[in-house]
Design a binder for these strands. Structure first.
Lengths: 251, 251
DNA sequence: TAATTGTAAAGTGTCGACACTTTAACATTG
DNA sequence: CAATGTTAAAGTGTCGACACTTTACAATTA
């Protein structure tokens, strides 16, 4: 389904990069953890060369960080980083939705409807998140812009990594989030079905911004009380104002 | 000035990646050209390892392409690619401008004003383009979102590469483009000075879209006659319509 | 001539080795 | 005890080598 602009090399380096990516996203490798090449090479049963090459791939994707000394660590996440990631998602996905709206077909509609149905039946928060992201991926892919899609993947991985480190996501309020998020998805779908690019972009922006505000710990949805802010298109009379977002890391 | 989220390793691989990037952007390495590791290693007087690592960096930035066989080529550019690059620029830079508007200072204003002055005095098309991109970089940087900035750099390099391969840019209509583009820059600056995020995003989108339509060969600016289309926020009554862009590769 | 096959050249994927740098543990000294 | 110097361990940067694969070319054949 997902397209791959530049066919990936089928070598050890790329394979290890994929494994490492999954490991970082799933939390096997924790933020700030040192990634020594000899240790990883031993772990995967290869020499250091493929490991080094994999590290470069992960660094470009923003999942690990090179220090001035040459050492590599899993990238750390603070509140500020989540805001950055969400802002980047909004930038890319609003354009993605805009593009997808122009080329939208009935088959696409059916795909999304099936996805939404599955989302409603999702048994757990993590299962729901997987379906949620898969739907966003589908729309980004349908935008037809390979470069936009590639950039989006970088952000998507960082977002998934952030999700696993937001404690409050775990199970607790899954039903509320699910219900709220599905409502947003329906609005996005409506704009796409009606082939209204601007509406799709706008609704997508709001959906992403709103859904992230559900994660923190509050149960009643978006609020305006916290410090971090996410810029988003929001009409006010003449002077637009950035809306607040709750702190995703509050325990 | 430009920030660097993850301090780059100061090793041969990164150095070579930079040189190769400059070479690809400037046209020393032409689109479709094969990049054999032994040849490059000899050229730079190093072994293959750093070259391999540099290739991975460039592939992630979208400047080169890996084939299924493992061989590497400078990425080729068609009309479709320019559309993708510009759409990605619009997505990223509209958000960048939105963010920059919130944090805009008088010092930033002075910087941009100096830049615009220099742009007006630019002696050549290439010189103007350099100043133009530097101004866009400044604004992206002022957005304060490191991830957005990093993603933007990828697109920026691809855009610069595309520019060197658009024949019509060379000198001929430099004055017209310059005049037109500076007008757009002033509108962007106005929105930033007034700290209107939505206005800044909107004006930036339109500026990017319009300026690329100048490159083709026409002298009278944006037209609606060509095949390729760039999606852009543009208000129509209820139903937004993608606007056309001229073919940048028409000789 | 055109197609096919065999062979050499070129290129990639991976590894182990070595030099240099940073880190960390330990011993020394005030 | 704290501060400092010392040394061994760990880690990175780079290289050359070798096996395997793909490509290019030439010879062979229909």
């Amino acid at each position: 389904m997902a397209r791959c602009p530049s066919e990936p090399r089928r070598n050890l380096a790329h394979e290890i990069a994929s494994k490492m990516r999954r490991g970082i996203i799933s939390g096997t490798f924790k933020p700030g953890e040192a990634l020594a090449e000899p240790a990883l090479a031993g772990r995967f049963g290869v020499s250091r060369a493929p490991v080094r090459e994999a590290m470069i791939e992960l660094e470009r994707a923003g999942l690990v960080q090179f220090e001035i000394t040459g050492r590599t660590r899993v990238r750390m996440l603070e509140e500020k980083d989540v805001v950055e990631i969400v802002e980047a998602r909004i930038a890319l996905e609003s354009m993605g939705a805009r593009l997808a709206a122009v080329r939208w077909t009935d088959e696409d509609t059916r795909w999304i409807e099936r996805s939404i149905t599955a989302q409603q039946k999702a048994a757990s928060g993590v299962k729901f998140s997987a379906l949620d992201i898969a739907m966003h991926e589908y729309i980004m892919n349908r935008g037809g812009n390979d470069r936009l899609f590639t950039l989006w993947q970088f952000v998507r991985w960082q977002f998934e990594m952030a999700l696993t480190h937001i404690h409050s996501l775990q199970e607790t309020q899954a039903p509320d989030l699910r219900c709220f998020s599905v409502t947003g998805h329906r609005k996005v779908l409506k704009a796409l079905v009606e082939r209204q690019p601007e509406m799709a972009a706008k609704v997508m922006s709001r959906h992403i911004k709103d859904s992230i505000e559900w994660y923190p710990g509050k149960r009643r949805g978006p609020s305006r009380q916290s410090r971090a802010r996410i810029a988003l298109p929001c009409k006010t009379r003449g002077h637009a104002v950035p809306v607040n977002v709750l702190n995703p890391f509050s325990q």
